[in-house]
């Protein structure tokens, strides 16, 4: 197979290339999914690839106390893992990035790629949704922002329109009294895909009751899924193991998983409850340390 390869040096240049190519062009960054997918026939070979991974503005990971986090779309998961010390308020994200693929894959694969790829089991999607990320999108008609939870439309389908680029994700700094965590279940300890994955964010009131909760589940629906009934049920309540179990049970009512070679729908549904429970408990533990 043959295709043209364009290396964009700036965002405007990438925009021009994409507009000229129209539906013949496809964006590539790390290429860990796209190039292998093309090779194995999972994706049709495009006529041209526009590489955005050399655009400096998109490679930046900005974290400022009070200001929150701005992750450029082409920041690699390896870079996230290595920034552990500056990301201490975002452990769910680091936990997700550090379990994605292998060290070699993590050093190529980008956060934007993992999001735009829109796999139901995407490693970082639940963490980024639970942290209430905003997706920054640049297109022919300028820049727009949407909540990341609304970015996913289905497996491999996103809100990105033709010639639009996901340039980054913004996350408000998790406030004092909050905590977040990510759990995934897979047979192997490395190089594996999640059977289910769950991220939880909790913010506690001064009396340790839940003020705000955000739970996002992966691999149990066509897109990452918020467990809204579980979130609501926790607000105003005090932590208990029983309550976490109930939240897990509520979370699983949202799940519409499939049966495949990796797991049955029934197991996924039950495990999403287990992981929700674990993620909430961990997030709560972290929130308490952060009061």
């Amino acid at each position: 197979m043959k295709f043209a390869y364009y290396k964009a040096k700036s965002l405007p240049e990438a925009m021009t290339m994409l507009e000229e190519l129209g539906d013949k062009g496809k964006i590539v960054a790390g290429g860990t999914d796209l190039l292998i997918g093309i090779q194995h026939g999972k994706y049709a070979a495009p006529e041209a690839l526009v590489d955005i991974s050399f655009i400096d503005d998109l490679n930046r990971l900005n974290v400022q106390n009070g200001d929150g986090l701005a992750i450029g779309a082409t920041v690699t998961h390896g870079a996230i893992c290595r920034a552990l010390n500056v990301l201490e308020k975002y452990p769910a994200l680091v936990e997700a990035s550090s379990q994605l693929g292998s060290p070699q894959v993590r050093n190529l694969a980008t956060v934007g790629g993992n999001i735009c790829n829109a796999a139901p089991s995407a490693e970082t999607a639940p963490a980024l949704v639970a942290l209430k990320s905003m997706a920054r999108i640049v297109g022919p008609s300028g820049e727009r922002q949407i909540e990341l939870k609304d970015f996913f439309l289905g497996p491999s389908r996103t809100d990105l329109k033709q010639s639009e680029i996901l340039v980054g994700l913004n996350i408000n700094e998790p406030p004092q009294g909050s905590g977040n965590a990510y759990f995934r279940l897979s047979p192997r300890n490395a190089l594996d895909i999640a059977i289910v994955n769950v991220a939880a964010y909790v913010k506690l009131n001064k009396d340790y009751t839940f003020e705000d909760v955000c739970i996002c589940m992966g691999a149990v629906a066509p897109t990452p899924l918020r467990a809204t009934s579980a979130e609501k049920a926790l607000v105003g309540e005090t932590f208990s193991e029983k309550l976490m179990r109930e939240a897990g049970q509520l979370a699983k009512t949202h799940a519409v998983p499939i049966t495949d070679v990796r797991a049955s729908a029934e197991y996924r549904r039950e495990m999403v409850a287990v992981l929700t429970e674990k993620a909430l408990a961990k997030a709560y533990e972290r929130a308490k340390l952060n009061m």
Binding site: P187, N189, V261
Partner: peptide
């Protein structure tokens, strides 16, 4: 982990290193 899985037509459905799982060093 390891198992070659066939469908009802006699076709292997986990013919990749992702779905045919051999242990890693961390396992």
């Amino acid at each position: 982990f390891e198992e070659i899985v066939y469908d009802e037509k006699g076709k292997v459905i986990n013919d990749t290193m992702l779905d045919y799982k051999i242990p890693t060093a961390l396992d």
